[in-house]
Amino acid sequence: MTRNTDTGDDSGDALPDGGVAESGQRSGFSPVSALNERFGSDFVESSQFWLPPFLLVGLFVYGAIIWNLLISLTDFTGFGTPDYGDLDLEMYSRALADSGFVDAAINTFILLVGFTLVTLALGLGLAILIDRNIRFENTFRTIYLLPMSLSFVVTAQFWAWMFNFNNGVINIVITSLGFGRVDWIGNPDIVLWAVMFALMWQFAGYAMVVFLAGLRAIPDEHYEAAKVDGASTVRMYWRVIIPQLKGSTISASVVLMVFALKAFDFLYSLVGGYRPPNGADILATKMVREAYANLNWAYASAVAITLFLMTLGIVGPYLYYQYNRGNL
């Protein structure tokens, strides 16, 4: 592949319209130059670098998503090959009529919103405290971040023990404070919040680190100016500092929400199976159960697509926001 300097120069500084017309007249139609002029000066020449990963990602990520979508439109169950001749939305209407699916979708949504908001708030609080030039700052930072480095498999077992009705540390603490014991795992009204609490414990440290980086990026002058103007500490953070953490908040919440959607690992490890305690079923566990316990591939694919759309609904606006700011 040799570099065509003529065309390269043309499209490099000329307006696209004029460039196309000129090069068309000068050298006849050439796909390489046409592509280069359309997409940028080195489009074809650089393709050897970006094309292989582009195709691989396209095939294995986007191709798989599209294939999954196709399967969700079939009636594929059991072993064999799906019949692509008869596509309809039956699996989606079945999902809407399935109370188990609706419950799982609601739980997923609650987990998503509740976990993300509380974790952000907690992470911000911790970050502000750590940022107050306290002693042993690094030690505290490490302690708060440590849970995130642990695998869900480990933390789920910790929490299963801690939530134990009889001898779990949480019930021991609250009974010693004079309250009655709580059935954290067995009560369907509570278990989702218990799971959320455990996830929050695990990821608050991550939110803290993101916010801490955001806080450190704010010039000291802003703090000093607020103080000179006589703002109280609370007022200073609320009016001056926190509004500048928008970027950190958005990036942290996207990561947290994606983690919330992946709470499958935690729930799986908590009970050692695909069926979470009553009241804590989420779309991810429902999907795996339908696929592998019942071999309802099409239905499981429909659940997967629903989960995918939820994820897209979260990540899409974020990408758009970043795009508008010129970061993409």
Binding site: A160, F163, N164, F165, N166, N167, G168, R181, D183, W184, I185, G186, V271, G272, P277
Partner: peptide, 9 residues
Amino acid sequence: INEDASSIG
């Protein structure tokens, strides 16, 4: 049954 039935296997 044991009160912690739901949290043990």
